[in-house]
Design a protein around this nucleic acid. Structure first.
Lengths: 199, 199
DNA sequence: CAGCTTATCTGGTCTCCGTCCCGAAAGTCG
DNA sequence: CGACTTTCGGGACGGAGACCAGATAAGCTG
């Protein structure tokens, strides 16, 4: 089935490839959106039809993984929501194979990224936190401090695990293996059934 | 004692006041750096002598608090580093009185902030995480996954507590009271002496 | 006082991101 | 064939932030 309208003559992967080439050749900051579009053989505006910002190219893989997270409604009402999100996170991690490391992060030193990487990456952290909060909060309109703290802390721990995964180098194992130990202490701290806290 | 060189004829507070006025009048995005400088009676470049970016005005208070955190060397080698950072964080929180809510966050709806607020605010979260990591890691050059995870999770929990504090409205109590419950589960999860985990 | 050093202020220029508008191209559908 | 729909692309604009060269105003030194 083909939708109406002019068919696209470019695609996200095409633009990604062009951008990655240029980033490797000249570095991220020195590469302009014009150059990316030119190498891909399209106009500059077409780039912004596919990516909202230049830095979005760096995070295409992560954005896909985040978009693939199950809707919060599916996990709400679970017995132990902490355990539910942990399982969902680990399953989402399994969809990202070890050879497909987020391109940007693995090349960060080489590309001279730094502040740039951090500032664009936190958007993804914020989205993860939002998703976690929507699952963990019994009343999403007014979540408790603890629920918010759990969402932020879990997101932070997941980030730490992901960073560790990336830094593990080529021989790294699955993302799940790095994520699980990072999440575990936070889960025990916040899990209602941990039994080691009276409150 | 007066240092050599031309004396400053403006100051950070002057620029902050000018910026805050304009932000309230027209919103953050609609206010240009030119306008801020003009209202403060200085040149545009002078603004950038005091602030590295336009968004830095929003976070002046937070930046001061972060800069006042004790150097990591003071806290390293403590018996329980988790407890040490918690204490340090709560003490830093006490230096921020309840009436001096970070200006930007409290006015975020009114100013039409949103993505802007988040993207500039996470720089501060990253700095807090970095500080936490430098304290928590026994070997800062190669911290373990758990140490990284603890730093990120604690930073996230602190953020959640701070957000809750801001949202508590005018009758809010001290920041410490909102921070402590947010940090507590993470601390118990990561504290070596929690005794509820065999690993 | 004259001259040197130091630090701030100012104006101008530059690149480039991100946004907007509008018209052209290229398909599908009735 | 004509209407509709979607993508493509050119042009223009505003604004952030970097950079530089020069002016200004203090303290220090001889």
């Amino acid at each position: 089935m083909t939708r109406a309208g002019r068919p696209r003559l470019s695609s996200r992967p095409m633009l990604e490839d062009a951008a990655h080439e240029l980033f490797l050749e000249q570095g991220y900051a020195a590469t302009t959106v014009d150059q990316i579009a030119q190498r891909a053989g399209v106009g500059r505006n077409t780039f912004f039809n596919y990516f909202g910002a230049k830095s979005d190219v760096l995070w295409a893989d992560v954005d896909d993984a985040l978009a693939a997270l199950p809707p919060s409604a599916e996990l709400r009402g679970d017995d132990d929501p902490i355990d539910a999100v942990r399982t969902a996170l680990l399953e989402a991690a399994d969809t990202m194979p070890a050879h497909r490391v987020p391109w940007a992060v693995s090349q960060s030193e080489l590309l001279g990224l730094g502040a740039e990487l951090a500032s664009s990456g936190v958007h993804r952290l914020a989205r993860l936190t939002e998703w976690l909060g929507s699952v963990l909060s019994s009343r999403p309109e007014r979540p408790s401090v603890t629920e918010r703290a759990a969402a932020h802390a879990l997101a932070g721990a997941a980030l730490a695990g992901a960073i560790d995964w990336v830094r593990a180098g080529r021989g790294r194992s699955a993302l799940r293996d790095h994520l699980a130990p990072a999440l575990e202490p936070v889960c025990t701290g916040f899990s209602a059934g941990s039994g080691c806290r009276t409150a």
